[in-house]
């Protein structure tokens, strides 16, 4: 086991809970775009904090960071490769037929 200085986990937890609270307050503003931005922005920040401090990615070898980023990048590749077909109802020379319920 490598030597590891432990950050103040309680404070990190408290920040996470506050962030959760803020993301819940979002819908009160009534603006959908703002709610989404807030919710997903906070999710990214929270996930980043959990990864960095609880999973100790912040002090882990760079290699592991690279690994995580690569996996996420692959998912981005998948998403954007599939989007022209699955995310749309219309495209060049094709269109979706009216389907059943949703």
């Amino acid at each position: 086991m490598t030597t590891l200085t432990h950050p103040k986990y309680g404070a990190i937890w408290f920040t996470l809970v506050v962030l959760l609270g803020i993301s819940l307050l979002g819908p009160l503003t009534g603006s959908t775009a703002f709610v989404l931005l807030l919710a997903f922005g906070i999710a990214v920040v929270k996930a980043g904090m959990v990864a960095a401090w609880f999973m100790h990615l912040a002090v882990e070898r760079r290699l592991i960071w690279f690994l995580m980023i690569t996996a996420l990048a692959l998912m981005a590749v998948l998403f954007f490769g599939v989007a022209p077909d699955v995310m749309r109802d219309q495209g060049q020379n094709w269109g979706a037929l009216a389907a059943g319920k949703n």
Binding site: M68, A71, L72, L74, M75, L78, F79, V82, V86, M87
Partner: peptide, 15 residues
């Protein structure tokens, strides 16, 4: 696991 959940959530997001 990231790619497993990533595949599922990417599919959900597309829909």
């Amino acid at each position: 696991e990231i790619v497993i959940f990533g595949g599922l959530l990417a599919s959900y997001l597309l829909f």
